[in-house]
Design a binder for these strands. Structure first.
Length: 450
RNA sequence: CGGGACGUGGCGCAGCCCGGUAGCGCACCUGAAUGGGGUUCAGGGGGUCGCGGGUUCAAAUCCCGCCGUCCCGACCA
């Protein structure tokens, strides 16, 4: 919920409006865009009937009499149905741009699912926009990629490599696809969010046209962009450890948990009153007092650690007498697991400690990623060694031939995660294609992916 | 669809090889003592052993068939 709210805020700040479009898409809509057909035909959930009928043995079967003339597809993504609507709404360049987002569940019947990372049904947001020019659409696609990156790094403490997808990896029907790629703790890549410049591909199929300023009739330029609950999986696999979840503080539902320590009723009263004081003093910070009776403090410690709460404050009668509290951070750094500190100091520094913890988690994840990123690899044998061994990201030259890309996939299962944006490119740029040794025309990041 | 494994109280598993009528941990209920890192002790409730058939005096256990789940692969924005 916190993640969604934060993203919605940024969508609004960048001029978008939330909307909601239909769940069912007429099959003919999907047929209109050729690449789209190929991309989604193999993984569709299809509605063919509208009624059930009881058989003699008490089972239910689809009533043959209710068979639909045209099947409905449970949306795998909403480009087609949204652009069908956009076409009705746009007449003039004055109606542009259209800037919408929707949160919706979509269905992709993959042969094999993976918890959080590739589920049959998943919740995502999909932004859809229509613009008058290519450049405006391109700027929008890049802007939203930036919003994603800023969110992943700034809120999830999850560093990403951003760049463009190769032709074979781009979205079905897109001109260009941009991506945020994170590295999990097993050194595999996770595509965490994508943004597409769809060009005029969909506009042409759905007659999304407008009268331009100069009086001509032109097709609109579309973008779409999305992140899903896959990010939750990414978060778990980026920060988690053997004790459980590790929540980055800016999206942690509970940032500070307070565990009161007491034995007798009078102590309980005293300590809970102090806990309430602490909560009040930490106004603006998401706190929770674990006042459950019949659970020992130790049991609570383990539970909140497993749930990844960034900080725990313990307070008991002895602490109150001394004006101190016990402070413990989910992932300690240098310090002891528990620190005995003056109450006032802890309360005064909590906001800063949360910020520092975010930075710590981000830096830690970035250091791990960088330690497992390989540059200057110019031998294909060496590349294979890396992929067959520890894995990780390999930055290397590419001749941009689909053959070389395919060979790598066959040999190692690694794929091109992206052609990195300038910020991530190697200096000097790799000269030769990693695979065929011809002159490289671009740099690519290879990795095994989820 | 190909390869592999597994189905036994709510959850996780042992028992199966070598048949004798079901057990452990967690969870749950009751009581008492405990309470600053997963409390302890005592008592208690809960299971068509995935389904069907066969062998046998006797099947969770052996045999045959089926169903289901998971993992690996093919697939995958």
């Amino acid at each position: 919920e916190l993640m969604r709210d934060r993203l919605d805020l940024r969508f609004r700040e960048t001029g978008h409006q939330n909307a909601y479009f239909p769940l069912f898409i007429p099959q003919s809509f999907l047929e209109r865009e050729a690449a789209h057909v190929e991309g989604f035909a193999k993984e569709a959930a299809i509605v063919t009937h509208t009624r059930l009928k009881a058989t003699d043995d008490g089972k239910l079967i689809p009533d043959p009499a209710s068979k639909l003339e045209e099947p409905l597809i449970v949306r795998p993504t909403s480009e087609t149905i949204i652009y069908e609507m956009f076409a009705k709404w746009v007449q003039s360049y004055r109606d542009l741009p259209l800037l919408y987002n929707q949160w919706a569940n979509v269905v992709r019947w993959e042969m094999r699912t993976r918890l959080f990372l590739r589920t049959t049904e998943f919740l995502w947001q999909e932004g859809h926009t229509a613009h008058a020019t290519h450049d405006e659409a391109e700027a929008e696609a890049l802007q939203m990629l930036g919003v994603y990156r800023e969110f992943m790094e700034g809120y999830l403490a999850m560093p990403v490599v951003v760049g463009q997808k190769s032709d074979s990896e781009k979205f079905a029907g897109a001109l260009r696809t941009y991506t945020c790629e994170a590295m999990m703790q097993d050194n595999r890549a996770l595509q965490n969010g994508t943004s597409h410049n769809l060009g005029q591909n969909f506009a042409k199929q759905f007659e999304l046209k407008f009268a331009s300023e100069s009086g001509g009739e032109e097709y609109a330029w579309n973008t779409s962009w999305g992140v899903s609950t896959r990010m939750v999986g990414g978060l778990v696999m980026t920060h988690g450890d053997d004790k459980g979840l590790v929540m980055p503080p800016r999206v942690a539902p509970i940032q500070v948990v307070i565990v009161p320590i007491y034995r007798k009723d009078d102590e309980r009263e005293l300590v809970l009153a102090k806990a309430a004081e602490i909560v009040a003093a930490l106004g603006g910070i998401r706190t929770h007092v674990d006042d459950r009776d019949k659970l020992t403090p130790g049991a609570k410690f383990f539970e909140w650690e497993m749930k990844g709460v960034p900080f725990r404050i313990e307070v008991g009668p002895k602490d109150i007498a001394k004006g101190q509290v016990v402070l413990a951070r989910r992932i300690p750094e240098g310090e002891e697991r528990k620190q005995f500190l003056p109450e006032a100091d802890v309360l005064g520094s909590m906001a800063q400690r949360l910020e520092d913890y975010h930075t710590f988690l981000l830096d830690r994840a970035r250091a791990r990623r960088d330690a497992n990123s390989h540059r200057g690899i110019d031998s294909y044998d060496r590349f294979r060694e890396i992929m067959e061994g520890p894995g990780g990201f390999v930055y290397a030259g590419w001749c941009e031939s689909a053959e070389c890309e395919e060979k790598v996939k066959e040999d190692t299962k690694a794929t091109i995660r992206c052609l990195p944006s300038e910020e991530f490119r190697s200096d000097p740029a790799p000269a030769k294609c990693l695979v065929c040794g011809a002159d490289a025309t671009t740099e690519a990041v290879w990795a095994k992916a989820y």
